Computed example of a mutant assay.
Amino acid sequence: MSHKIAFFASGNGDSVLLQAHDRTIMTDICHRASRCQDENDDDAPDFAPDIRATCTGDYLDIFVLTHPDQDHLCGFGEVFHLGSPDDWDDDPEDGPVKIIVNEIWCSPYGADPHYTTDVSKPVIDEIKRRKALRGTPAGERDGNRLVIMDTGSHESGTITDGLDWRLLAPTPEEANIPESDDPDNPNSSNPSSLVIRWTITVGGKKNYVLLGGDSTVEVWERIHDEVLGNDPDALAWHILLSLHHCSRRSIGRIENPDTKDETFVPSPEAEAALGEQRGDGHVIASSKRIVRGGPTPPSYHARNRYLKILADGGEVTDDVRKRFLCTGGDKEGDKPDHVVFKFSAGGPTRALMAGPFVTTTGTSSGRGGGYG
């Protein structure tokens, strides 16, 4: 039985595939389909075959949409089936078979955003199709299920024995993104991001993974105030996906932006909430290569703050730096590469990705009931 997680190289975008205890869960996708077909475009490795190899039987158990931004849902329809499972084509004339997503998780804002784009509209339409079926027998079928969650309605749960989740954000207020007065400048959906801590138990050992989409510094300051003091273990992690593709605005604030006096001011509260590392953890930046003085995200300042978190009060040594991994590469000339970990009774260990992510046990069709 395989227990793994892959952070696929997606440029500045999230594409995270988790397989544990015969369940497969994908959090966000940024699959730039047209570029992936270009063999000379090393910045867009095609990971769709790895997803398909994992989803034996052409079913994905859960797709988690942290928030409805382009870099978290693009290419969804290139890999996953859109529409009723009754309309699924199991023998298409062109291209591979699309994967049926048994269940989608999203926030209230993800289910009803104030705006869509050409990229996001197909996914939002699929969510709305499923939303209309909720409360009916059809809404409980594989390929139709939808779970809309915030901390007011969902706190924690179990997918199957050994695979558990804890929802840390958004609150109902954070999920309630106000509509902008300027239709050409909509309000950011980042504060509505789902923040989920996964627990994968193998051989009695708990492996913790913390995923937070593009959640903002205000969200993490709220988590600090409401969660850290009362239940720090709820924030524990062995693997942390850096927020918003290693953005400085998720762990601090910018004073005097866009001027020569621009200054980054880190948030001690946000960093403390993100600091519940267990053992020698790893931070993953799902981003382009981090360059000092380059466009952000990713941010060189944020990278340095994550290194301090990894150092846990000690010196930022070469061994600490090795535990910060960027899918876009670490130095000039690096090609983007996926970051993969295996889970075991000894804790998470990094694995090299050679060939498909996994070729053994996948999901099965016909599994009734929801996971929400």
Rank of each mutant, 00 (worst) to 15 (best):
F7A: 04
A9R: 11
N12W: 01
D14T: 11
S15F: 09
V16L: 08
D22T: 00
I29V: 05
C30A: 12
H31C: 02
A33F: 14
D42T: 12
D42Q: 02
P45A: 04
I51H: 09
R52P: 04
A53Q: 11
D58P: 03
I62N: 09
T66S: 13
H67V: 01
P68V: 11
D71I: 08
H81L: 09
G83Y: 07
P85F: 05
D87N: 12
W88R: 10
G95E: 07
P96L: 05
I100D: 13
D112Q: 09
T117H: 04
D125S: 06
A132V: 01
A138M: 11
G143M: 00
V147E: 03
H154M: 12
H154S: 06
E155D: 10
S156F: 02
T158S: 14
R166T: 07
E173A: 15
I177M: 05
I177Q: 03
P186Q: 04
N187Y: 10
S192Q: 09
W198D: 05
G203N: 13
G204R: 11
G204V: 01
L211P: 00
G213I: 06
D214H: 11
E226P: 01
D231Q: 15
A236W: 10
C246N: 15
S247F: 04
I254P: 00
K260F: 13
S267W: 06
E271F: 07
A273R: 07
R278C: 12
G279H: 12
V291W: 02
G294Y: 12
S299V: 06
S299N: 06
N304L: 12
R305S: 05
R321F: 01
K322S: 08
R323E: 09
F324Q: 11
L325K: 05
K331D: 10
E332Q: 06
D334I: 11
D334N: 15
D337E: 13
V339A: 01
V339S: 05
V340S: 08
F343C: 13
F343D: 04
F343A: 08
L352A: 15
G369H: 05
